[in-house]
Design a binder for these strands. Structure first.
Lengths: 198, 198
DNA sequence: TGCATTTTATGATTAAAATCATAAAACAAG
DNA sequence: CTTGTTTTATGATTTTAATCATAAAATGCA
């Protein structure tokens, strides 16, 4: 998103996070802009009985957690490292200064927020009105376009666990397992030693 | 929100829409920036068996439909006038020119997108993991802060129909009616001749 | 290499919201 | 004022995904 040169010029520091480390926590006020150098970060909520909902998964080069930063509101979700990660951390004031002095970065931020809003619009409609098969397929097809799924001779490898698919679509893991099997029977996707291809 | 002076300077035209008129349709490519002068617009989807999901409701002064405009993607939902409305329509090229030449407007757009992303994050988590009472209350409390609910001696008047609440939370109208009654019994809200107060 | 944990899997049962049916009250339009 | 439509309401029934229980396979790591 923001080039290494520019973000470092404004005083960003690099920080490493181990797997399962918390980057920030639901309810806290935002102090920084975060941009992933390497690794994988998920943003998620837990309801009262511990059930998780994954808001999104972010990869190298992507930023996350900006909306509350712009609004001075508390984080609505947690950010957790799914695997070891290295992240640029830029204090809010420096970030705002960077934006002011580099109007083109604003456009990048807008495009990024627009992309995420688009994803949320599509998935919100899916989750609230569509049945499991439709939801899972939509998530997978979105993932092919916007998450970093790799294509090989079997098609696109959907490298999410059944649990992750459930946490992204609001379904329980058993339902996802059964749904994926049904979708395979219908020829919508392939299962090759437990991995899902589309 | 772009000032009347500025938006007109860049060639926006005013257009009126009657109740139930379509402003744009799901699947079409965006050509314009839209900003409401007066009236009320809803963005919503219909699933295969006609069930509606309302993405958001927008009021005077607010803009809508920008994400696909920035991304050159098809609209993921329809925009429909809930009541007679007047809207500024600014062609994409003019809008982009306006943004380039007025960097402060970019910040406004960012804040607006951030706000909508925040709402979607909160509601997505609600819809996928919370039970009806929790969902309905969350929507109402969000509405008090961000939709234009009026306060009187009974509290905030939630001027949504039960059907609208259902379409915003992914619940059926009968479920909303029963849920609201339960919430009243629990003292979370008031029902005064069928109107809901909080 | 062995052991603990995670992931995938499947069957049986349950619970909760959707669906179906029906109607009264409120509101809007002519 | 009358009539048609929308909104709110309630009871009975059904459906579907969640839950519960259990286990094999795969993976991670000490």
């Amino acid at each position: 998103m923001i080039t290494v040169e520019l973000i470092e010029k404004y005083g960003a520091i690099k920080k490493t996070f181990d797997k399962n480390d918390l980057v920030f926590e639901e309810g806290n006020l935002p102090l920084n802009y975060y941009q992933i150098i390497s690794g994988e970060i998920k943003m998620s909520n837990y309801n009262d009985d511990g059930r998780e909902f994954i808001q999104g998964i972010f990869y190298s080069g992507q930023s996350f957690g900006e909306p509350p930063l712009f609004l001075n509101q508390k984080y609505p979700a947690n950010a957790i490292a799914v695997e070891n990660a290295e992240i640029f951390i830029l204090p809010k004031e420096n970030f705002m200064k960077l934006l002011e002095e580099n109007p083109k970065v604003s456009i990048k931020i807008i495009e990024n927020l627009a992309q995420r809003l688009y994803y949320k619009s599509v998935m919100a409609a899916e989750i609230s009105t569509q049945e499991p098969e439709h939801r899972v397929l939509k998530l997978i097809d979105h993932g092919i376009a916007y998450f970093n799924f790799q294509k090989d001779q079997n098609g696109y490898l959907i490298n999410f666990t059944r649990q992750q698919i459930g946490d992204l679509t609001g379904l329980r893991v058993e339902t996802v397992i059964r749904t994926i099997k049904t979708l395979e029977k219908k020829g919508e996707l392939k299962i090759i030693n437990r991995k899902v291809y589309r």
